[in-house]
Design a protein around this nucleic acid. Structure first.
Length: 566
RNA sequence: GCACCCAUAGCUCAGCUGGAUAGAGCAUCGCCCUUCUAAGGCGAGGGUCUUAGGUUCGAAUCCUAAUGGGUGUACCA
């Protein structure tokens, strides 16, 4: 339910009835409970234009607000605010309605578009490390979110499978034999080091490696077989990580760098035709106005750079895939690169005017001391290790360890631990640097995934005890039920805004509000106690069930699971 | 040098695009389990929203400058 839109309509109608012209009405959620549920602040800016007293205008408008159904009361306050209270009967009906809706009242977009989301993008020459974490989980969350809202999301995993180091790796793979190689590849870091070692110590090997680069690029069948074998194994490692992370990137989402290889000359040609190319210091470049650094399209030696690949990918995504929104979930440090590439794509007509291009930038992952996240030795932290540690730590943190058999405990620890890692990351504004702190994310207090999971488990516990169908209406009986219902009804508005801003932290923030409010409701409003009347009991059960649905669905968008018991 | 980003409680962060007395969580100090899961709830203290100007009915939010921090800056991705 587009609640805000609905309220806006009421205000628009009232303004029209009061013969006041406003282009855009925008109510906001009231800052304090005593100001009601929503407030309209648009009168004050008007007053000046109309040379009238804002309170007077506000009173005239408030008079016109239909308080027969959705809105119970409209009140003028302060210098000219209009505070709005929603009607309890209406709230009860609406929450009851979305309880029986599998989509929890979240409407599908009337105008869905094709969206390409480019995320994760691991390098096939290296094992996935913490540097890939944020892109992977933020990108996956946005994909889930937009899919849920009805857009046609095309996930694109732009893996790095091309480049000079692959000649070396393939030469080494061939040298030690494919079967041994598959085994050794378990530790890509080591494999890379070993290959590099051979490259440095053995000139013949080095020559062979260079030869392989040329051969791969010219399409030599044998080398391509080896190369594909290497990518396959390496990608398999990534998929294990995705599996652990509960990230839904699959083989068919992979559109590797190499895929664009044959399209690169066409990009150059297209830019040249548009008269965008200029030779500079031997390289083919595009110079943009007000940019001191050109975008190099083709190097002096004929080779291509990643800007060219990105342009080819942009063309492919808009022209072939038909995307109207193309989102890159990439480290904020590449802002300059994307700004330039997007401009080149637009100015050259490679991508149409109607396509939204966005760089979904995120900050760097830091340690507790505010320095880039590294191992104690200063190396990069492998994602596999980090996730294993999360599960181990979660297992440690689970209070009633003894109540579970080992398999159940393992499963629980996985859901809690991985959820904690993801939630901690998703719950802060993606653009700022993010401080990774085990204690905080697994301290299990405050705005964490476990707090949500705990609330969910508590609700499940109520239903285990009740063991029956909900068969009554929702009847708002007090202030806290009023606020909880209203918050649950805002789910649609919230998701819409989070999607527009590509901001997962708005979802966690919302879920935290829901959970906190539910905890208060739970403490103050007995449900299954003897003294509670049947109508009230059914109403509270329904509100609890709806809260559980919102938590489960919200966490599901974040790629985080819930458990029945904790 | 130039460009971009950031600065809110001791710490980690919100603040819905300009609204009313700036909010949470940690941490600190109280209170609440014979009661649906206390991994919880209730309460207290804690702020010159980095600084100085400006815009206007109204600024943490917009504009300018300063300070401090981060990042990027032509043939790597």
């Amino acid at each position: 339910m587009k609640l805000k839109q609905k309220i806006n309509q009421y205000i628009s109608d009232a303004l029209a009835n009061a013969a006041i012209n406003v282009e855009q009405v925008n109510v906001v959620e009231a800052g304090k409970p005593e100001f009601g549920d929503y407030q309209f602040n648009g009168i004050m800016p008007l007053a000046k234009k109309l040379r009238r007293n804002p309170r007077e205008i506000a009173a005239e408008v408030a008079e016109q607000i239909d308080t027969g159904g959705v809105i119970r009361k409209a009140e003028v306050a302060g210098p000219g605010f209009i505070n709005l209270w929603l009607d309890d009967i209406w709230l009860g009906e609406e929450t009851g309605r979305i309880l029986s809706d599998p989509r929890i009242g979240v409407e599908k977009k009337p105008d869905p578009v094709k969206v390409v989301i480019d995320y994760s993008g691991p390098n096939m020459a290296k094992q996935m490390h913490v540097g890939h974490l944020r892109s992977t989980i933020i990108g996956d969350t946005l994909s889930n979110l937009l899919t849920f809202l009805g857009d046609e999301v095309i996930r694109q995993n732009h893996i790095g499978d091309w480049g000079t180091q692959f000649g070396m790796l393939i030469a080494y793979l061939e040298e030690i034999g494919e079967d041994t190689g598959s085994e050794n590849l378990k530790d890509l870091e080591q494999f890379y080091k070993d290959a590099k070692g051979r490259f440095d110590e053995d000139a013949a090997f080095a020559d062979k490696a260079r030869e392989y680069v040329v051969k791969i690029q010219s399409g030599d069948p044998h080398c391509l077989v080896l190369w594909k074998r290497f990518i396959d194994i390496s990608l398999g490692h990534c998929e294990e990580i995705y599996e652990k992370l509960n990230v839904s990137l699959a083989r068919e989402d992979v559109r590797a760098e190499s895929f664009y290889n044959e399209k690169l000359p066409k990009v150059v040609e297209a830019l040249d035709k548009k008269g965008k190319l200029q030779m500079s210091e031997g390289a083919k470049c595009v110079f943009l106005e007000d940019e001191e650094i050109p975008v190099i399209i083709q190097k002096g030696d004929g080779g291509y750079l990643y800007a060219t690949t990105d342009l080819a990918a942009l063309w492919f995504r808009s022209e072939v895939l038909g995307a109207k929104r193309i989102s890159y979930v990439v480290d904020a440090r590449q802002a300059g690169h994307f700004k330039q590439v997007f401009r080149v794509a637009r100015e050259s007509g490679l991508v149409g005017e109607d396509v939204l291009l966005e760089h979904i930038a995120f900050g760097t992952m830091m340690d507790k001391g505010g320095r880039p996240f590294k191992t104690r030795e200063g190396g990069t932290v492998k994602l596999a290790d980090l996730l294993d540690e999360a599960v181990v730590r979660a297992k440690e943190a689970i209070k009633a360890k003894d109540a579970y058999d080992p398999a159940a405990l393992e499963n629980l620890a996985r859901i809690v631990g991985i959820g904690a890692v993801k939630y901690a990351d998703l719950s802060i504004n993606r653009e700022s640097n993010y401080i990774f702190d085990w204690e905080k994310m697994l301290s299990l207090e405050g705005n964490t995934s476990l707090y949500q999971q705990y609330a969910y488990a508590r609700i499940m516990s109520i239903f285990r005890k009740y063991d029956g169908e909900i068969r009554g209406r929702i009847v708002i009986g007090n202030e806290i039920e009023h606020r909880l219902s209203l918050l649950l009804l805002r789910f649609d508005d919230l998701l819409e805004r989070a999607a527009k801003d590509a901001a997962p932290h708005q979802i966690t923030s919302y879920l935290y509000d829901v959970t906190t409010l539910f905890m208060r409701f739970y403490e103050q409003n007995p449900i299954l106690k003897e003294e509670v009347g049947e109508e009230t009991r059914q109403s509270r059960l329904a509100l609890s069930a709806l809260t559980a649905n919102v938590i489960r669905q919200g966490l599901s968008i974040l790629g985080i699971g819930v458990v029945e018991r904790l």
